[in-house]
């Protein structure tokens, strides 16, 4: 028997500590973030319980060690992959927020097309464009051949569907997580559209 198992057991919940949360929008429309803000005055309660790391709310550029990383949007380019990996490396829990993070969503509806044809049409052949050629500045992230949901690249711990997920659903999920409960959504809070 190990000494750890003989150690005194503390059945009380751990002392309150503000959980650190990071959020980002990859190939998304920020609609899920807007829905997060739609929790309205409950955000004040939330701020008593969490502090934000990297997020459009804080404008912090890189993610530090966090308890929870919230990802909106899927993966459509190399930068999305970099950001997602940064989150996965620094966050104990990753939450896929909304349709695009979960199944690629609207951006993934380009997936039945060949990316080369798309680039050619958008930058070269379509009427009314500047015909300046396909941008090749190294500052620009390259698009992926296909758009992918985030669980195809990193392990995702929780999913919250919706386009966007309703504010009440986000609130329910966050409060469940904060309270140490496995999140559940009843009828009306769970929808894919």
């Amino acid at each position: 028997m190990t000494t750890a198992m003989n150690a005194p057991v503390n059945l009380a919940a751990p002392p309150p500590r503000k959980l650190r949360v990071a959020t980002t929008s990859l190939a998304g429309c920020f609609g899920c973030h807007m829905s997060l803000l739609d929790i309205d005055e409950r955000i004040l309660t939330l701020l008593d319980l969490v502090e934000f790391d990297r997020s459009p709310i804080t404008d912090i550029k890189h993610c530090g060690p966090c308890d929870l990383g919230i990802i909106e949007g899927g993966l459509c380019n190399a930068e999305n992959v970099h950001v997602l990996r940064e989150f996965r490396n620094h966050c104990k829990i990753i939450l896929a927020l909304g349709a695009c993070a979960i199944n690629g969503g609207l951006p993934a509806q380009r997936n039945h097309l060949d990316l080369r044809d798309v680039l050619e049409e958008v930058y070269q052949t379509e009427v009314g464009l500047s015909h300046g050629g396909i941008p090749n500045d190294p500052e620009l992230p390259l698009p992926l051949n296909k758009v992918h949901p985030i669980h195809e690249v990193v392990k995702v711990d929780y999913f919250l569907p919706g386009c966007p997920p309703p504010a009440d659903a986000i609130w329910k999920l966050l409060t469940d997580l904060l309270a140490g409960r496995t999140p559940t959504l009843g009828h009306g809070l769970m929808h894919y559209d």
Binding site: I102, H148, P149, H151, E152, L160, P161
Partner: peptide, 21 residues
């Protein structure tokens, strides 16, 4: 969709096929 709600399907879990149909 309704059956997926009923069974609390939170994600597609598998890799997407994105077929051309």
């Amino acid at each position: 969709q309704a059956t997926a709600y009923e069974l609390k399907m939170m994600s597609p879990h598998f890799d997407m096929f994105y077929p051309d149909r």
